[in-house]
Nucleic acid binder design. Structure first.
Lengths: 143, 143
DNA sequence: TATTGTTATACTCTATAACTATA
DNA sequence: TATAGTTATAGAGTATAACAATA
């Protein structure tokens, strides 16, 4: 009878993701980075320097939207730009020292509601399940 | 050495949730319900009729914000209001017939990008892992 | 005094449209 | 012709502030 379990799972997962997103937003107030800004600098930290167009594709937003996000981070001194060596159209963004410092700070459990909740409310096995599921969520989107 | 694995997991989970949220938003265009609207009518469908204040607490937004979401659904004929029987301050919202119909439609895989991706890209075992993780995400937020 | 709902206003994130420069 | 970036503008979602009605 679980013929349409994937529809039920989609409903539950969508609701949980909406909730987590709002909670993350509410928990990152005033001076801090927004979830989107964190995602961008986290990606550059992991994958290396990137162009606006590449970041937009990776984060599933329009280039014009990504430009505003990147522009805010640049203005704040978190990202720095340099021209692409061979393609005069492109601009390559990378983390500044300040960017790396800030990224380390916001990842610390002390400033990170989600890390605290994971450590406090989940067993090690449940943490592993959640880590696996994180990979699965990425796979749902990979094109 | 995985001393701070929960910080790493929090980073990865936060990024994945941001991404999924943007993808869900991009995949629900014009006439359809937004993720927030879906979450609200899904919750009323599951838990029964509710007040604006209760919905706001459950969905982690301010009552003023929830009022706008509920107001849009009411104007669309998806929700209907009635006064609380004993407390003159409260207004109780419930699904209309149209609301139940619409909810059934948006949950169908045919209109549901996420359900299709779950069915197509995950094995049954991976679907179970994701279902378990969905419960874990809820527990991260339960107060 | 606290809570519910409402109205008004503003901020953040993302979108569309139109443009310039380079490939 | 296609792609990268930019500028301008608009919409959705949520926030804060101030208020009236009820408990």
């Amino acid at each position: 009878m679980p013929e349409k379990d994937h529809e039920h799972l989609a409903t539950e997962l969508g609701a949980a993701v909406s909730l987590l997103m709002r909670q993350m937003r509410a928990a990152s107030p005033h001076g801090e980075l927004s979830p989107t800004q964190r995602a961008v600098i986290g990606r550059i930290d992991t994958d290396g320097e990137a162009t606006i167009a590449a970041l937009a594709r990776a984060e599933r937003v329009r280039p014009q939207s990504m430009r505003l996000t990147v522009g805010a981070l640049e203005e704040r001194g978190v990202l720095t730009r340099r021209p692409h060596p061979t393609d005069g159209r492109q601009v390559v963004f990378s983390l500044t020292e300040e960017g790396r410092r800030l990224l380390a700070v916001v990842r610390q459990a002390k400033h990170n509601w989600l890390a605290v909740a994971i450590a406090d409310r989940l067993t090690p096995e449940e943490q592993r399940t959640l880590a696996t599921a994180t990979e699965l969520m990425r796979r749902l989107m990979s094109e």
